[in-house]
Amino acid sequence: MGIIKALGLVFDYLKYDEEGNVEDTQRAIDDVSLDIEEGDFIAILGHNGSGKSTLAKHMNALLLPTEGTMWVEGIDTSKEEKLWRIRQKAGMVFQNPDNQIIASVVEEDVGFGPENMGIPTEKIWKRVDDSLKAVGMLSYRNHSPNRLSGGQKQRVAIAGVMAMRPKCIVLDEPTAMLDPIGRREVLDAVHELNREAGVTVILITHYMEEAIEADKVFVMDNGKVVMQGSPREVFSQVETLKSYRLDVPQVTELAYELSQAGVKLPQGILTIEELEEALCR
């Protein structure tokens, strides 16, 4: 079993009337089974409302399954007594950089998690140092978070999660609000954590280019996982992806259009360099 495993996962959001009776249900996850290997970098794609965030919230027990089971490092998330251990194993980072930072100094914010976990003070400082260094923000430790750029704030938020030493980090559209360089900084930081510290990464994104660097891509549609495979496998299916309201990276689209127009190109081109190479052979 991998670090995160779901079997027959179903989740319904419930709507209650005034008496507290269930008035309506909305199925957000519909029979999802998946198995994520420790150390993998996973990208999750899917249309708005397809269930990505709902699935992510199951990975650290913010939500519990209506049916089926979710295991994080072998622990069934519905076992309430294990809640804290699960939250420590899988950290979450969200979209809006402004809603995630609580303290008025960067290092305090990063130390907040370990402090809550009851880690002794000396060890907290070590963790704060390590985490800030890992995301390239050590020199900002005494800064006020609200003076940082969006990309810097997101990296501080990631450091805050890292300070709890999770095995796995779940990022729900962490770059949606960022400028191009901020996006690059955050992605580089996350890839580095994955490579250097072996942290398993689950990245939810609407930017197709961000998914090409993943080990594996999952595509969700109406609460189901409908495609999974390497980026090249997934993005070579241009028409199928479009039918799920998704897209391919701009260079992949261009390569596809050129081959439709009769240019002989290999399938599944993902990067600018690959297309340049193929066109100038």
């Binding site: 249309h47 708005n48 609407h206 197709m208």
Partner: peptide
């Protein structure tokens, strides 16, 4: 102001 941040590709288009 950044109307398509967080929209899926089809929605954005």
């Amino acid at each position: 102001d950044e109307p398509t941040a967080g929209l899926d590709p089809r929605g954005r288009d």
